[in-house]
Amino acid sequence: MLRGFQLFGLFSRISILNEMQYRANFFIQVFQSALTLTTGLIVMNVVFSYTQTLGGWTHAELLAIYGVFFLMSGLVGALIFPNIWAFMEDVREGRLDFILTKPEDAQVLISVRQLALWRLVDVIIGVVVLAIALTQIGQQSSWLQALAFGAALLMGAVILYSIILIASTAAFWSVRVWEMMEMIGSIFQAGRWPVGIYPDWLRLGLTYLIPVAFAVTVPAEALTGRLTPQTLLFTFFFTVFLAFISRKIWFYGLKNYTGASA
């Protein structure tokens, strides 16, 4: 575990040095994030020009969900997706063999190599949106709530990582996994609305299949005082379960991998 963090620190430093060469990308990222944010706010305004609450959430509370969504997609975009893309490319190009020969845990190695530094702009924007939303709601969050929020956020990130890892192991069998990643990306978009509004069949899918519910709605519930200890506990078990399963599937995939390079 500690080794993992050390490796993460080392690779992050390299990534940061690398990204610092392209500072113009920072401004492009800011532009794109501002664009996404503006669109999201316009959409929300259109919806709330016709109604007071959506599935029991007020405008300010929905803004809080949007903040969490932004934050989470920043995290996924900065830390998880670049690594998974690189991993899938490595399988396709036959470079994965070199990673497997290294004396480190291969899952850890493929998971910490990349850091898309500028995507962290979204994390900052998410935090700002969240802060504004919380002031608008005007309700004091207790320390306990803040703690629950932090825990829920962390567990949400682990859940998303596990799901994306499971999906990406398909790369061991089929080289065309691009569509699958696109699909997961667009399903994640469903998370900008509270999962409670979706019909049952879809809500189940968004809870257990592609667990957007745990990644976005649960942390937002923690901050708006809707989270029950039961849900948090269940989230914890679900996180452990998924992390375990994804590792099993990863090993199973590795066993099937036959190597492609010379």
Partner: peptide, 9 residues
């Protein structure tokens, strides 16, 4: 999968 990607929106 692409179809699901398009339909979810």
């Amino acid at each position: 999968m692409f179809m699901v990607h398009i339909l979810i929106e």
